[in-house]
């Protein structure tokens, strides 16, 4: 990186001396002036020219010293910006780089400030600040690299359930979960945050291209509503891995959707529906009406 910087500096100085030389040439000499001023002009030009040559050689040698990076730079999600076709959005990349630099600087400064303030024993708040806590907010949970998501999902392994991972929208994951022979669910994630869940019956088709169509059965439409409630409940930006694991465990409790009676009223059917709600902690089944009373 340092070499690259010095090369760029050398190119910059070469450009400035070339400019100087041409400026001098453009100014020219005064025709009425004496012979010695002409030789002076010539000498000046030669000096400039030699300067230029020396700098050019320096640039060349520096360039030869440069190595191509072994691995391509990982640009993360920004690589998709190159696929942007709308002209007004093509300038986004430079803005992105600027804001990135800015955040980097903020981070540096805040780190320094934190160190300075930490030396001061006079504390004004009781909030405990440690070195470790600085790093946690820096992991943003909606921008994980795909390998991490794959690894996380492969770790989830519940009985009678199959997981099928596909990526129809770039690097973001859609997980198709088939629970026993009861239901299918498509979980749309952004990074490792759950954004949307679609629930359908075992005999219905769940097409990754059409994730917004609702199930034709009332019971699965109701279950879908409940999965959205749970999605908000389990949302946890600081511990995204744990959040997705607990969500999957909760969702798996639907493997006995038709098999379990409501814990409160002891009945299977109420208003033509089985107990569609599962308690978020105990995973016990309840009818929607029985859940709050």
């Amino acid at each position: 990186m340092e070499k690259l910087n010095s090369t760029l500096g050398a190119v910059r100085s070469l450009r400035s001396s070339v400019r100087q030389c041409f400026e001098q040439l453009a100014d020219g000499t005064n025709a009425e002036l004496a012979e010695d001023s002409r030789t002076k002009f010539l000498l000046k030009f030669q000096e400039n020219f030699n300067n230029m040559n020396a700098q050019l050689r320096e640039v060349e040698s520096l360039i030869n010293g440069l190595q191509a990076p072994q691995t391509p730079y990982c640009l993360g999600q920004t690589t998709y910006l190159a696929q942007e076709t709308a002209p007004e959005r093509q300038a986004l990349y430079s803005q992105l780089v600027n804001s990135y630099k800015w955040i980097d600087k903020v981070h540096d400064h805040s780190f320094l400030a934190f160190n300075n303030l930490n030396q001061n024993n006079l504390r004004r708040s009781y909030v405990y600040c440690s070195q470790k806590r600085v790093r946690i907010p820096f992991t943003s949970c909606n921008n994980f690299d795909p390998d991490h998501t794959d690894k996380l999902l492969s770790e989830i392994n519940l009985p009678l359930t199959s997981y099928q991972v596909c990526r129809p929208f770039g690097s973001n994951v859609v997980v198709i979960v088939t629970i026993s022979r009861v239901l299918k669910a498509a979980i749309v994630c952004k990074g490792v945050l759950i954004e949307w869940v679609t629930v359908k019956g075992f005999d219905e088709t769940l097409d990754p291209d059409d994730l917004w169509a609702e199930s034709r059965y009332e019971v699965f439409r109701k279950v879908q509503e409940h999965t959205h409630i749970a999605m908000l409940h389990f949302f946890s930006p600081t511990l995204p891995d744990l959040a997705i694991k607990s969500y999957m465990t909760w969702l798996h409790s639907y493997s006995k959707l038709f098999l379990e009676a409501c814990k409160r009223c002891g009945k299977f059917v109420s208003n033509g529906l089985p107990p569609t709600w599962r308690d978020l902690r105990t995973l016990e089944p309840f009818h929607e009406e029985c859940r709050n009373c």
């Binding site: 019956g201 959707l257 089985p274």
Partner: peptide, 8 residues
């Protein structure tokens, strides 16, 4: 919605 008798 159910395809297996023993479930429902």
């Amino acid at each position: 919605p159910c395809v297996v008798l023993s479930y429902c």
